[in-house]
Design a protein around this nucleic acid. Structure first.
Length: 434
RNA sequence: UCCUCGGUAGCUCAAUGGUAGAGCAUUCGGCUGUUAACCGAAGGGUUCCAGGUUCGAGUCCUGGCCGAGGAGCCA
């Protein structure tokens, strides 16, 4: 029995008989020659079967294979310039686990398809090279984030998915029945992070986040993943440095370990290679001036529209940190700038190449009286925030943190048009299945 | 919620108001180095739904359903 080998490792088995387990990706034939392309999730290898070189029944089994039929292939690995990838498998035997019948063929052909069809078949679409590459980069980004924080002494503390009330009172939440009560799906772990930061000093949470906004754009999902660090005794500048070091680390890691995937995605790496600290800093005031010079309608005090964000992020070849937005457009928990109370000590990081916001955060309001006033101004139910006020009653300290949307980072690093391809099973305004 | 565009073969699309078509997929045949292989042939249709105009509607009109792109909204 030859050794079972993953396709990614075949180069170590040149000249040896191996067993590949996978699916038929495509079959090309030329007379008495068959070229089955086999994929196993780790890669794709071309098999070669010549009539006369194998028993007739083996030749027939390969000839009759249909796309995505599951199989085990035995053969000798050979280096060959003519093979895609440089290696091919001289097939000696095939064990077909399931032959997909031709009258119900695999729906996704190697030709082009529309987005609706592909999304309806997302569970199968994931098998394509392109989707496989995106999943690989997504995995690497998440692993890099975890390594980054773990290596710096952060402790991962999970925050709840069910929450009793609006965290911020601003966004639309998904409401669910919770026995005799109502609960809401989390839109951020941040308030809980502030509690755990006071327990462990440096913390982060990583989990799904839910937004019920009826946003229908290339950068919105109703369910997405966010990684949120929070650091006790940190100020705005510390959060900005942490954010730029995180993003630079993640980009470098993907460039080091996922070149092949980026190549599959035809992602130009030059713009990514420029993402080294320091990233440019831009105050909200200067951002507004810059946008007005470029023809935007924005006035001081307003939030950036999608077009403004794109315009800003296209103006720099690195991610840019936009800080000190007007307090009125930001959440109640943002600390005001002591030098200018009309602006908040907050920061957004905009990815370059028009990708826009990937990070949002800043310094939190640490003063009890001020926080209470902001809660009342925002007309939030004080009762629900008593525990949060406790954090300012018992040993309050300055602290800061941010949230980074994983899918937007994946979209940017992979160079994708839309975030729907960055998550295995996207949840959007018009998409709940599969 | 609003604006724009779209819905025709399994898929991607075409079709001046006048016989519903191509490529891919499927089936059959050919080819000993194919690279989304190629060449030849065949089968395959409730033109999203309901009305209406017309001698005649895939095409025009009205309403609806579904989707895409964008806007608004959105740490």
């Amino acid at each position: 029995m030859p050794p079972v080998v993953e396709i990614r490792n075949v180069s170590n088995f040149v000249g040896q008989e191996v067993l590949i387990q996978g699916w038929l990706y495509n079959l090309r034939e030329s007379g008495k020659l068959l070229f089955p392309l086999i994929r196993d999730g780790s890669g794709i290898i071309q098999g070669v079967v010549a009539k006369g070189a194998v028993p007739p029944e083996v030749f027939a089994r390969v000839r009759d294979l249909t796309q995505e039929s599951s199989l085990r292939v035995t053969g000798k690995v050979r280096a060959d310039q003519r093979a895609p990838g440089g290696f091919e498998l001289e097939v000696s035997d095939v064990d077909v686990l399931q032959l997909i019948p031709p009258d119900h063929p695999y729906p996704i052909t190697p030709k082009e398809h529309g987005i609706e069809f592909l999304m309806d078949h997302r569970h199968l679409w994931l098998r394509s090279s392109r989707q496989r590459a995106i999943l690989g980069v997504r995995h690497e980004i998440i692993k890099a984030c975890r390594d980054f924080f773990d290596d710096r002494g952060f402790i991962l503390v999970d925050t709840p998915i069910f929450t009793p009330a609006a965290c911020e009172g601003t966004t639309t939440l998904f409401e669910v029945d919770y026995f005799e009560d109502k609960a809401y799906l989390t839109q951020s772990g941040q308030l809980y992070n502030e509690a755990t930061a006071a327990a462990v000093g440096k913390t982060y949470c990583f989990g799904p986040t839910f937004r019920a906004e009826k946003s229908k754009t290339r950068r919105h999902l109703t369910e997405f993943w966010m990684i949120e660090p929070e650091v006790a005794f940190a100020h705005l500048d510390d959060a900005m440095v942490l954010g730029e070091e995180l993003v630079a680390f993640v980009v470098r890691r993907v460039l080091e370990r996922r070149r092949g995937e980026l190549q599959t995605l035809e992602r130009k790496v030059a713009p990514l290679e420029k993402c080294t600290p320091p990233f440019p800093r831009l105050s909200y005031d200067d951002a507004v001036k810059m946008l007005q010079e470029k023809g935007s309608e924005i006035q001081w005090g307003g939030d950036f529209g999608g077009g403004d964000e794109t315009m800003l992020s296209e103006s720099f070849d690195k991610p840019v940190l936009v800080h000190r937005y007007p307090a009125q457009v930001k959440a109640f928990y943002m600390a005001p700038d002591p030098a200018r109370s009309e602006v908040a000590l907050c920061v957004d990081m905009l990815a370059p190449e028009g990708y826009g916001e990937i990070i949002g955060g800043g310094e939190r309001l640490a003063d009890f009286d001020l926080l209470l006033r902001r809660i009342e101004e925002a007309k939030l139910p004080r009762q629900a925030f008593e525990w949060y006020l406790d954090l300012r009653r018992y040993g309050t300290v300055p602290h800061a943190g941010f949230g980074m949307g994983i899918e937007r980072v994946v979209a940017w690093i992979c160079g994708l048009e839309h975030v729907r391809e960055t998550i295995p099973f996207p949840r959007m305004l018009h998409r709940l299945t599969p």
